[in-house]
Simulated scan of single mutants.
Amino acid sequence: MEKAMTSKCFMILVVFGVLGYAKAQGLELGFYDTSCPKAEKIISDFVKEHIRNAPSLASPLLRMHFHDCFVRGCDASILINSTSANNNTEKAGNPNKTLRGFDFIDRVKAAVEAECPGVVSCADIIALTARDAVGVIGGPFWNVPTGRRDGLISNTSEANTQIPGPTFNFSSLQTSFANKGLNVTDLVLLSGAHTIGVSHCSSFSKRLYNFTGKGDEDPSMDSFYIANLKKLKCTVANDTTTIVEMDPGSFRTFDLGYYKNLLKRRGLFQSDAALTTNSASKNLIVSLVNSPLEKFLQEFSLAMEKMGRIQVKTGSSGEIRKNCAVVNS
């Protein structure tokens, strides 16, 4: 009984600690309860209606949230259109060239604007849409405190240098995440998003065909898996169109398949394989694989809440964009 009470008290402290941390940054659950009380329901209803018919879009929307937060914080700078050849935005960056879902966010924004013009930020819409889309396909729920405001600056070079790439080794990954206030545990958990979605062959074909520039294969990747990929999927080295499931067999299901594949040396990206090269991250992967799925879902949710607070703009910072793709004039 005493142990149960202690555990309950601890959870209450964790919840209030999270809420207190969020409010300290100007974010809070139900931020729009007064200014636009139907906002979150409008977003949720729209996502439920459309993601059921297009479940493959859940992964790109989650990836969009991640890519947005890693450049100038979670401020919807990823949505801004380039204005000229000399003013390319994050959208034009290499990590975002295969990203989908921009039109979906525009449609969600239009639905919210029809109810409450100029009130709900595009940054909050990205965060809420990602959470709700994952929920539609059976993934975990996490709290999304709101109150983010939209950024005014977006450029290609920052997207190219600040978003972790598929060829990163562990040291580069750790540094990239640390720069955003995230630790090794966050790195492992957020990488778990690769349990859903697909990748183009071009993101990892070097591991199959020319790892060191000598026409060789990556020795850290399972040779049987390489043979299958070369035979059935990425049949030529310069394939830029074929897509491959990140978690074969369950790429639309939030499960432990991604981590199990890593331990079998079957992660697609070098950055996936890198997670097993560090003792702390590998131990966490083993722990997740040997624990009930619920542990991963709960811890992933906490990591997502933490990521969603990276360098947020609140109060009088930034603006509330009328059109997510264009800074207000």
Rank of each mutant, 00 (worst) to 15 (best):
D45Y: 12
V47F: 05
E49Y: 01
E49R: 07
H50L: 10
R52N: 11
N53A: 15
N53Q: 07
A54R: 10
A54C: 07
P55M: 03
P55W: 08
S56T: 08
L57K: 05
L57A: 04
L57F: 09
P60E: 01
L61I: 13
L61V: 08
R63Y: 05
M64Q: 03
H65T: 01
F66N: 01
F66D: 05
F66Q: 10
D68L: 08
C69P: 01
V71D: 06
V71L: 14
G73I: 00
G73T: 01
C74N: 06
D75Y: 01
D75C: 03
A76Y: 01
I78C: 08
I78K: 07
I80P: 13
I80Q: 09
I80F: 07
N81I: 11
N81D: 15
N81Y: 10
S82L: 09
S82I: 04
S82W: 00
S82G: 09
S82E: 13
T83P: 10
S84Q: 10
A85C: 07
N87M: 04
N87A: 02
T89H: 05
K91R: 13
A92I: 02
A92R: 04
G93I: 10
G93M: 05
G93P: 12
G93H: 05
N94W: 15
N94R: 05
P95Y: 00
T98M: 07
T98I: 14
L99A: 11
L99W: 08
F102C: 05
F102W: 03
F102I: 10
F104I: 15
F104W: 12
F104V: 04
F104L: 07
I105K: 07
I105W: 08
D106L: 12
R107K: 15
R107N: 13
V108H: 01
V108T: 05
V108D: 01
K109Y: 05
A110N: 08
E113N: 08
G118H: 06
V119L: 05
V120E: 01
S121E: 05
S121A: 13
C122N: 03
C122P: 10
C122M: 06
A123S: 12
D124Y: 12
D124N: 09
